[in-house]
Design a binder for these strands. Structure first.
Length: 634
RNA sequence: GCCACCGUGGCUCAGGGGUAGAGCAGCUCACUCGUAAUGAGCAGGUCGUGAGUUCGAAUCUCACCGGUGGCUCCA
């Protein structure tokens, strides 16, 4: 580049009328809820990053710039570089950015015509592609669709030697960014326009704040989040293990303590489901390929399944990627009258999906997992009612764990895509059923998102964020009018004629693995009493207290409480510390006084000391809190 | 799968061309102690795997296998 589009002296802050107007106008691009100053600082920092990166790499070959927007916690910029960027590059670039900041270069803006823009960016292939989108008035410079009648102006912002196709807004000059509140975070690969088929660019992530203390605070939060990460806690608390080299990536080994939590969740939901009229069933882990060809799973999701198993007689079997075809086959075993419906078949079904190696992560993204699955076979006029019941159950489940920080997403099909079965009219009908049912929950805020449907129908998802702010789908409720068709399901109606039932697929937890992963982070490992793998640590002060300690344990076990005696010859303080770190809810200290009074001295993991309780009092307290699934300890 | 970084005893980590080190955990012994770590001793690793460079590789190079953060994907 190097053509001069703007003429002004370095350091000059005078702006002409056009610039002031454009600055003001650009403010409308700041997303709701985003601090406007911070947005401008980060957007401007992205430009400075691009300038510094170009200076670093240009001597080694062609550098093309793509896009560089502010994001939730910072900003990034995508580049096409002559070689890989390493840490030394990042350090150099970050330092260079601080120098540029010190120059207090004004961000000058000018509106240009399509022709001018093409000429100006004639050596920037990615910018040219964006300009063509802008010229058509269909997309903004990030390639996102713009609303009808909002054809954006084409503007160019320049500071120092760097000019970029950009809608703004920016700070007035680079000096408004604090060098001490700026940090480059990481390098990643990112596909141009987010499409795997396109060239992969080098993305550099950074963040910027108003002042250094805010950056420090942010970095501290990142550190604290790591302490709550379920992968770290899962190891420290002995909940689960993964042996990628020997057992396999994304395959969870539930250790005894993790199994307690899972077992409690299963019991809880089973009992809720029995009360709601569900019938438990069991089905195998593999089935002939034919089953999944009928369902459509095999052709539609072939690439995300483990390859079929072959036997010696020429048959192919598939590890099940979903439970629904099996439940459908159970439904088909008998003739059904409309009087029988709804039929609700439930199973904790373990399924296997082949996730790409770079995608598996801890318990939240795995290759084998157990869904708290159920399929409801209903008449068309029962759909709304049954759907609403399922939503209610899901809300109750989430509420039981105190999970309130979730969003609700209605996933609908992406028009003109071939990744769905069934025709549009049926999809519209199913989507409408969801939207009708959801009206029964006026307090439930939801968004409708295209392309988030299952391949057989639209769905309602409950999405939560983990500690590092990644979104995960937990509970899901789906309306399906396609699989009943493909499997030719029927029931006999009042009119004595065959009718096609509608299916509702649902899983309030989603999968036990993912749900518990999120729970670990939600509670920071300090599980409520009813879930805690070990509910009480019995801590004798000296060996002469061991006898009563063991008696206490025996009596607690008999009451269904999970307690262990710490009989090591360590000091009491060491035993307390151990129990604290394992986040055991209750520590029952036993010394001379407790033996004397047949009591236990109760300490909570919250560092509070309750004091001496008789064993009966303690048992009553614990059992009451467990029955209530209380989140409190006293 | 793609990009970057990483891979040393159960865990956390130091070291870095001459044939492995700490803390915690574990085991043994002593101590028997009132609400977050008693002391001493012992044991434990072919430094992810395989090839190459070298007189010599945990250390350098390459490939592969994993992990972390992104991207893509996620019925």
């Amino acid at each position: 580049m190097g053509r001069e589009l703007f003429c002004f002296a370095t350091g000059e802050r005078q702006m002409d009328i056009q610039q002031v107007d454009l600055y003001k106008e650009a403010e409308r691009y700041i997303p709701k809820g985003y601090d406007p100053e911070l947005y401008k600082v980060r957007h401007s920092a992205a430009h400075i990053l691009a300038q510094a990166v170009r200076e670093r790499f240009a001597p080694e070959g062609e550098v093309s710039i793509a896009i560089g927007p502010p994001i939730e916690d910072g900003f990034y910029y995508d580049f096409d570089l002559p070689r890989a960027a390493n840490e030394a590059d990042l350090a150099w670039v970050e330092e260079r950015m601080r120098e540029i900041i010190k120059g207090k270069f004004p961000f000058a803006v000018r509106e240009v015509s399509v022709e001018e823009a093409r000429e100006f960016f004639k050596e920037e292939p990615y910018k040219l592609e964006l300009i063509e989108g802008l010229a058509r008035g269909q997309v903004d410079e990030y390639g996102n669709a713009v609303p009808e009648g909002e054809a954006p102006k084409i503007t160019i912002y320049q500071h120092d030697t760097f000019a970029d196709l950009c809608r703004g807004p920016h700070v007035r000059h680079t000096g408004e960014i604090k060098g001490t509140a700026l940090k480059l975070m990481s390098v990643a690969g990112a596909y141009w326009r987010g499409d795997e088929k396109n060239r992969q660019l080098t993305r550099i992530y950074g963040t910027a704040f108003r002042k250094q203390s805010e950056l420090d605070e942010y970095l501290k939060q990142l550190e604290e989040a790591k302490l709550r990460d379920h992968r770290k806690l899962g190891k420290e608390l002995g909940l689960y293990a993964i042996e990628p080299q020997i057992v396999g990536q994304g395959l969870i080994l539930w250790m005894p303590k993790g199994a307690v939590i899972r077992d409690q969740l299963e019991r809880f939901l089973k009992s809720e489901q029995l009360a709601a009229g569900y019938q438990p069933v069991y089905t195998p882990n593999i089935a002939k390929l034919d089953l999944f060809k009928i369902s459509g799973h095999y052709p539609y999701y072939k690439e995300s399944q483990f390859p079929p198993l072959e036997d010696d007689e020429g048959n192919s079997y598939l590890l099940k990627p979903m439970n629904c075809p099996f439940h459908i086959m159970i439904y088909k075993q008998e003739h059904h009258s409309y009087r029988d419906l709804p039929i609700r078949l439930a199973e904790f079904g373990t399924v296997y999906r082949w996730e790409k190696s770079g995608e598996v992560s801890g318990m939240t993204r795995v290759r084998g997992f157990t869904q708290d699955d159920a399929h409801l076979f209903v008449t068309p006029d029962q759909v709304e009612e049954e759907f609403a019941n399922v939503v209610e159950l899901t809300l109750k489940v989430l509420d039981t764990f105190g999970l309130s920080d979730y969003r609700v997403r209605v996933g609908v099909r992406e028009p003109n895509s071939d990744k769905y079965v069934g025709d549009a009219a049926i999809w519209d009908q199913a989507t409408q059923a969801i939207l009708n049912a959801i009206q029964r929950f006026p307090e439930l805020k939801y968004t409708v998102e295209e392309g988030e449907a299952a391949f057989y129908g639209p769905k309602l998802d409950f999405v939560v964020r983990d500690v590092i702010k990644r979104d995960w789908q937990l509970g899901t409720v789906q309306v399906d009018m396609n699989l009943p068709e493909r499997f030719e399901l029927e029931y006999v109606g009042e009119d004595n004629a065959p009718h096609r039932p509608v299916m509702i697929h649902r899983a309030p937890f989603g999968s036990l693995e993912r749900f518990i992963g999120i729970l670990i982070e939600h509670f920071g490992g300090a599980f409520p009493l009813w879930l805690a793998p070990q509910q009480a640590a019995i801590i004798p002060i000296a060996d002469r207290h061991l006898e009563w300690a063991k008696e206490v344990r025996t009596r607690l076990l008999a009451e269904g409480l999970r307690a262990e005696v710490d009989a090591r010859s360590d000091r009491m303080n060491a035993k307390i510390r151990e129990a604290q770190m394992q986040k055991v809810p209750y520590m029952l200290v036993i010394g001379d006084r407790e033996v004397e009074e047949q009591a236990v001295s109760v300490r909570l993991r919250s560092n509070e000391t309750v004091g001496a309780l008789s064993l009966e009092q303690f048992v009553a307290l614990a059992k009451r809190l467990i029955n209530e699934k209380s989140l409190a300890l006293q």
